[in-house]
């Protein structure tokens, strides 16, 4: 169970990116976090595994506090939190198998890591997961030889190799074409139930959020404006999240960390 209380994050003296956020995720639910770019979705996810340091607040995973962890204890906590990235973040020059096994880096020792002598159980698990996502025949191919959808599946398998207690997905479909992103969303959805794993997905495509998740959390300027089931996510909820934020949203969300996308999700992929 993930329990976030009063989470605040500000960069320097700018306006906070996240402000007094409370969120509780239980069981194996798939939660979509929607919001305009710069609303703090990415920062929220990165606060959970501490790639970004929260300014204040508390994040508890299965009862243990994450915010205060340091050094080896932090690394031990991180290996229980899988993460899937928008840009896949694979190591291009290594093989698919090496990328997947890298998910075990928190468990193996340095010698095993450098010589790639992973325990047999890890390799077995890697093959099983690769077969599950139907890319086992690419095991010895270089990661940059794969297509976008295949690369993201490698990213998902790498995260699952960690035997995570929770899976974070930061815009996992934003770099993919519509068909492939549907596949990845379906994959995340079914993996969540197969492995009984809570999954948090940052997503700007509201249609996909409604189709593949059972709970939607709306963020705007670092505050939660909606929390409910896809059925409850009405036009007024959408308006509350995106309202007034039109195409050039970079100015409106200026304090945001990195304005990476335009407002494409709002103007083109909007289902309503």
């Amino acid at each position: 169970m993930l329990e976030i209380t009063n989470l605040t994050k500000r960069y320097g003296n700018d306006a906070p990116v996240l402000e007094g956020l409370d969120l509780k995720v239980e069981g194996n639910s798939v939660v979509a976090i929607v919001g305009a770019s710069g609303a703090g979705k990415s920062t929220l996810l990165r606060c959970i595994n501490r790639l970004v340091e929260p300014t204040s607040g508390s994040i508890k995973l299965n009862g243990s506090e994450l915010v205060t962890l340091k050094g080896a204890a932090l690394r031990r906590a991180r290996r229980k939190i899988g993460m899937v990235f928008q840009g896949f973040n694979l190591i291009d020059r290594l093989t698919v198998m090496e990328n997947v096994l890298a998910g075990r880096l928190g468990y193996v020792n340095l010698y095993q890591a450098i010589t790639r002598r992973y325990p047999r159980a890890d390799i077995e698990r890697a093959f099983t997961l690769l077969e599950r996502v139907e890319i086992a025949h690419y095991a010895n191919k270089r990661a940059d030889a794969l297509s976008g959808g295949e690369r993201q599946r490698v990213g998902v398998v790498r995260a699952l190799m960690q035997e995570p207690k929770i899976l974070l997905a930061d815009e996992p479909t934003a770099s993919l074409d519509p068909r492939t992103s549907e596949q990845i969303m379906r994959l995340l959805q079914s993996l969540a139930s197969e492995l009984s794993l809570p999954v948090l997905i940052n997503i700007h495509n509201v249609a996909q959020a409604k189709a593949y998740t059972e709970r939607i959390v709306g963020l705007r300027h670092g505050k939660m404006t909606f929390d409910g089931t896809p059925d409850e996510f009405t036009k007024s909820a959408l308006e509350a999240i995106y309202g007034g934020i039109e195409a050039p949203d970079d100015e409106l969300t200026a304090p945001a960390a990195k304005p990476r996308k335009g407002a494409r999700g709002v103007t083109h992929d909007d289902p309503l």
Partner: peptide, 29 residues
């Protein structure tokens, strides 16, 4: 590229392992 470094940190890898996996392959050429 910073992104693989971030991904390796997210797996709970130590600094030495992050370098071995995310830095070394990238600077090889």
């Amino acid at each position: 590229d910073r992104r693989p470094v971030e991904a390796m940190q997210a797996t709970g890898a130590s600094k030495a392992k992050v370098i071995a996996y995310a830095v070394v392959p990238q600077v090889m050429p």
